[in-house]
Design a protein around this nucleic acid. Structure first.
Lengths: 261, 261
DNA sequence: GTTCGACTCGTACAGCGTTCGATTCCACTC
DNA sequence: GAGTGGAATCGAACGCTGTACGAGTCGAAC
């Protein structure tokens, strides 16, 4: 019953002497392949070929493909820049963090399919989480609310970026730019929205604007709403408040676990 | 250059005489397989076997596996319930919509990997979008802001539900309930958070609460923030504003949702 | 009775992740 | 130098995948 959970991070890695093939090299090459040609392009055979090594040699350094992807994913987490909250406002930190994620996801579009469904316990992910939680601590959130704020921000950014990425994938595949594709797709969405005239009208508006700026605006819109909402909760929930020690949790936890033995 | 984009919804379906195998039957069976055993379990061979037909017979009714998934996905969109905004406040509609999505995703965990990256132009998706946009229109949003509000809400709900689903998948695989798994995973996260004591402290708090209720609280937290933020923007951006066509919105009808809490 | 389209399906192909066992290579002891 | 043992590489093979292709079946129209 113990330890069904397995992850690259729960096993210790094999020796790091100086083999002709190294884990870091494998991860880097896999990343190149993924960035250049997407998730489907990464096969162990192709990776081996690109490494100039035998396909199955990879399995000495990495248990299986899933673990390899965990490793590459954590590299991407490493690209999520989050400034030090002591140097600006928490809103600035959160906002710039959000934009940094967006940018990293654009650089590595394939992650969007993995990131939400893979537990983030690699070193870079932990570093990021730590700084994010610290940001909301500095902002004035207490207890689990720090976690809630962090996961809310992450959820929004990941959720809103996903369609952007699939849009970019479509433009790339069609060999058109955003506005051209938008124009080309007009009959499709028109037909789809045939039964909903007010929806069709809404879509028609997009013909008059630059699609990419509209998407950027969309991102900013939701981000602002979210931060506004967080700020409102901060002001509402926080009475002047005596400084709390981190070592006294449970204080504001209403619901204690009932199934506790 | 024209029409590289292809989707089930852009081709018209083949005749619907009364064949021994029908598209609806295929979609329904695929859904059963997906719900019961997840994305990996759906292979054309297994589907054919479950249908009691030849594997490749499916390809007469459906162009390929991707199109089949588009069809099943739209079925799930059909389960996203969104009440009529004329019967409550837009906040109630948005909130109950969010919870409905969450519930549907729990029933069909596999969609979370598809939904963000597949264009939503099926009939059920369009119907949902239409009602959602109408909701925000009724709330007072104008122009593209209606779209922005809709996509922001969707982004948050999908983004925040994804980790919940992967958590549920882990519990299912381990054969434990949430709290047991949380306990069992404690050494793992402790080790992962070793370098970040304040993060470890945060995680330790989760040992004192029921994990599932904590997640529910997390969902509600972010949802409230988001709706607060949307409302704030509404109040800010809207000058007194001449009475609009959708007048007399029973805004005072406070409907309590039973599925919540 | 013939023809024709709708529909079914067996076969085959190229590719996948991964297991297994043989093989090579190198740092070390004797 | 010879010998040894673990680290690392890798070729072959297994069972799976999606689907292209073409042959086959069936029922209705002429």
């Amino acid at each position: 019953m113990e330890q069904q959970f397995s992850s690259v991070w729960t096993r210790e890695r094999r020796t790091a002497k100086s083999p002709t093939l190294s884990r870091t090299q494998i991860v880097r090459t896999a990343m190149e392949l993924l960035d250049a040609e997407g998730l489907d392009a990464l096969s162990m055979r192709r990776l081996g070929a690109k490494l100039g090594s035998g396909t199955t040699s990879i399995y000495w350094h990495v248990a299986n493909k899933d673990e390899l992807l965990e490793l590459v994913l954590d590299e991407v987490y490493g690209e999520f820049d989050i400034p030090d909250v002591r140097e600006t406002t928490w809103r600035n930190v959160a906002s710039s963090f959000a934009y940094s994620i967006r940018q990293a996801l654009f650089a590595h579009p394939w992650v969007i399919s993995y990131i939400g469904t893979t537990p983030a316990i690699g070193p870079n992910a932990m570093r990021m989480m730590s700084r994010l939680v610290a940001t909301f601590d500095h902002a004035g959130f207490r207890g689990l609310d720090q976690d809630h704020a962090a996961s809310t921000l992450l959820a929004y950014v990941l959720g809103v970026t996903a369609p952007e990425i699939s849009w970019r994938a479509m433009t790339a595949k069609a060999g058109l730019d955003s506005n051209e594709l938008n124009e080309a797709l007009q009959p499709v969405v028109e037909k789809a929205a045939a039964d909903y005239p007010e929806l069709a009208a809404r879509y028609a508006e997009y013909r008059c604007v630059d699609v990419d700026s509209a998407r950027a605006l969309n991102f900013e819109f939701g981000l602002t709403c979210l931060l506004d909402g967080l700020e409102a909760r901060l002001n509402r929930a926080t009475p002047p408040l005596a400084p709390r020690s981190h070592s006294a949790p449970g204080a504001d936890i209403e619901e204690t676990r009932e199934s506790r033995r």
